[in-house]
Structures are given as structure tokens and as C-alpha cells.
Nucleic acid binder design. Structure first.
Lengths: 228, 228
DNA sequence: ATTACTAGTAAGCGAGTAT
DNA sequence: TATACTCGCTTACTAGTAA
């Protein structure tokens, strides 16, 4: 979808072309979007061919109406802006199922973690984590999570070693509820670990390489903290 | 403002670049917006030169943050989408002060209208209308108004002639409250007439040719009616 | 008046590559 | 690895104009 066509569609929508036909000549549209009449005419032809607008050409002007499909294009844009400005409650990620090397399992089996999971999450996790590899660029979204404070699992000592603090976020994978577990310290990884009372791999019938969609819930506004 | 730059800015914002710095290479951005690394690099240069983003170039990746100015560009876009989808309570117009030929005055001085103005608007208008010429393309917005029902002034007979039904809409001109009066029948005009208890021309200190901004309030959702 | 075609020009794109 | 330059190619633009 060409960006300039979205802009034109938006302009038509602002004139009311979503719920009504709108009377506008290519010259008028051109003035509105500050381009030439010829270009405006071409835009309308393109939008028409793509089925995003409908036109009734009269002898003089034309009546234009945005189609359902065209309205959907704009609605999608609107949704994106809402995600930007409406201090989102969720972030959206997609990723691929991978196999870790069983370290996730080793960690969550530690008594010091298990007690806290039971207390703060209300369940003892199935012994094993579901590892999801996300796109490197989406680590920026994880960055946001690291600054928030949802459910905090404290660090503890066991024998000679220390197990670090981790943070938990209510999440869904393909609409199944689970919990994202992030180490509070350390470098950003492209692999996320999820836990649940039951085996997510079985419940979701997943195998390595499967694509899945993730949503992660963010805490309420007041608890949010940003840089600087 | 080039449409494709807005799209890129939006993409960065979706990664969280408004409140945080975001770590992204030109190649990653390219993949995100489905273009080449070179083009993505050029986009970032353009946005940087325009002051819409700030960059910290490291040896490897770069940290990007949307500036206040950049955020404003996106906020303006968002506002436009809100006007499209949030079933607006107001429509926004701009226009130029013109002189009619005194017909407005003739009409509102009619007793049949005056009684109804007093009853339904709560005031007897200053004897004269403020005429505002709008852009022809904005008649589409007026079209929306014609389908709504805010304050209806009934037609009446006086002597041998009939005075038609008119509709009134709460409005503001340069933030001063007034009332837009539209004939219920007849062709769309590019000249709108406004009334008020006092002389709007004096109160706003207007002369012919002055540019003014208008907002017109629409009725609540339930009362709205669309074509078809 | 319009819409929209043609043709010449300008802007945008991406492969190759320097840094 | 990165970023971002050059340059040939493609796409988009507008003036002129036909319908």
C-alpha cells in the first residue's frame, strides 16, 4: 500500500467520504493535498482500481465514496496510531518456537523460584519453559517491559550460587494465557521464555519453527516509568 | 511533509521510539518497512535533517529517538484519524468574511423567525448575519450538517409568501460562540450565515476578507442519519 | 467546466561499494 | 559487521492538451 494513497484516502475521509458520497473535482482535491490536477486525477484512478473508493463520474464533478475496503485501510492506520498514543496495555510480538538447552527448566525447578511462583502467580509452573525467538528489532519492545514492574520474583541464594531477580508479565500465545518470564538483569535476548501451569508446547500443539503471536500485558499507567 | 516519511516515523514510534531510544540498524528498519537498506538509511538521514528524530551512531547499530517535533507530526496525524473515526462532535472549517446583500438581515428580522429564535435559541439575534465564504470543497462537510437535526426553525407564512425551514447549529468563530443558520432546503452554498445576540463583526473586529476559523457542533450519535 | 492521456522532467529506489 | 555514497533504472510528477 503506497503511503501517498493512504494520505489521499485520509483526506477524502476527512471530507466525510466514509459515510457519505462527497462531491469533489480532481482540481479541488489537488488544491486540498497541494499537488497538480493531473496527479490528483491519477490518485483517484489508482484508488478506484484498487477498489478503495467508488466513483460516479458526472459531466462536471464526480461523487466519491470510500468503500468498505478503503475504510478498513484507514481503520488499520488509526489502530496503529492508537497503539502509539493510547499508552498501550498490551504489546504485540510475533515469534518462532525454538528449543532451548533445558536451562529454563533448571531455573524454574529451583525451590527459591517455585515458592515465589506459587505465591505470586498462583501456580507452580510446568517444569520447562516455552522458548520463543523474536525478531532482533522487537527487542526494543522488550526494552519497554524491562522498565516496568508487574510481578517481581526476588533473587535468592542456594548453596554457593545466586539466582537473580526475574519479572513476570501476563501474556498470551496464540490466545492461550501464560506468563512471560524475563531476567531483571543481563543483556536483552531475542529468546523469550514462557511458563504456564501446563505444558504450553502440548496445549498449543507446537513444534520447533512454528510461528506464533504473542501479546504481553503492561502494567497500568501509574506504574510505568520511562527513561530520563 | 512527505507521506513516506510519516510512515517511517510511525513505524519507529510503534517500536517505542517516542518515549525511549530504540536500537535499530538501517537494515532492520528496511526489513520492517519492506524496502532496501539504502532506502531505509536515506529515510533516517532525511528524518534527522528535518529534526524529527535524533540519532546516536555507534560502531554497530544506532540509537534512535523521535524528537518532540517528530512526535508532533504523528500526533497531528492521529488527531486527523480521530476526527474521521471518533464520530466527531465538531466539524472544522475555515473561511473568509464577506458582505452579503443584506438579505440575511431581512430574513432574521421576520417576526416568524424571531419568535422561534427567542424560544429555541434563547436570544433574539442582532439584526444582521455574518457571512462567511468557505472553500467549495468544504461544502461536503456542510452536507453532513444538512442531514442532522439540531435546532429546527419551522417554516411559516407571512402575507403572500412562505419563509422556509432553517436549521441552527451551535458554532464558534475564532472561539466566540455563535449560531450557524442553514436553510433546510435549497442548494448548497459556499456562504454560511451566522447569528449571535450581538454583532459578530464588531465583537470579533472583523472586516471583509479576514480569515476565520469555524467549529460547528454536531448532534449526538443517536440523532445522526446517513445516506441510504 | 470537467477528466485523463501523452510526453518530458524530477524524484525515488536499490545494487554495488567505499568507509 | 555497520552507514551511506554513486549511479543507472524506475516511478511519480506536471505541462500541454484531447475529449
Amino acid at each position: 500500500m503506497k503511503p501517498y494513497l493512504i494520505q489521499v484516502l485520509k483526506e477524502l475521509a476527512l471530507l466525510g467520504a466514509i459515510n457519505n458520497r462527497v462531491e469533489i473535482s480532481s482540481g479541488e482535491l489537488a488544491a486540498q493535498i497541494k499537488t497538480s490536477q493531473q496527479t490528483a486525477s491519477r490518485y483517484l484512478l489508482e484508488l478506484d482500481e484498487m477498489g478503495l473508493i467508488g466513483r460516479e463520474l458526472g459531466v462536471k464533478k464526480q461523487m466519491i465514496r470510500i468503500t468498505e475496503e478503503g475504510a478498513n485501510v484507514l481503520r488499520d492506520e488509526y489502530t496503529q496510531y492508537q497503539r502509539i498514543f493510547e499508552l498501550p496495555e498490551k504489546i504485540y510480538l510475533s515469534g518462532v518456537v525454538t528449543s532451548g538447552m533445558g536451562e529454563g527448566r533448571y531455573y524454574i525447578e529451583q525451590k527459591g523460584y517455585k515458592i515465589q511462583f506459587k505465591e505470586k502467580l498462583g501456580f507452580i509452573p510446568y517444569p520447562g519453559t516455552l522458548n520463543i525467538e523474536i525478531k532482533p528489532v522487537d527487542r526494543n519492545k522488550i526494552r519497554l517491559l524491562k522498565k516496568t514492574d508487574v510481578i517481581r520474583i526476588n533473587s535468592f541464594k542456594s548453596g554457593d550460587r545466586t539466582f537473580g531477580e526475574v519479572r513476570c508479565f501476563p501474556a498470551t500465545i496464540n490466545d492461550v494465557e501464560c506468563v512471560l518470564v524475563l531476567p531483571a538483569r543481563g543483556h536483552y535476548s531475542t529468546v523469550l521464555e514462557f511458563i504456564s501451569p501446563v505444558s504450553l508446547r502440548e496445549k498449543l500443539n507446537l513444534k520447533d519453527g512454528d510461528n506464533i503471536n504473542i501479546t504481553v500485558s503492561l502494567p497500568r499507567e501509574g506504574e510505568r516509568c520511562y527513561e530520563e
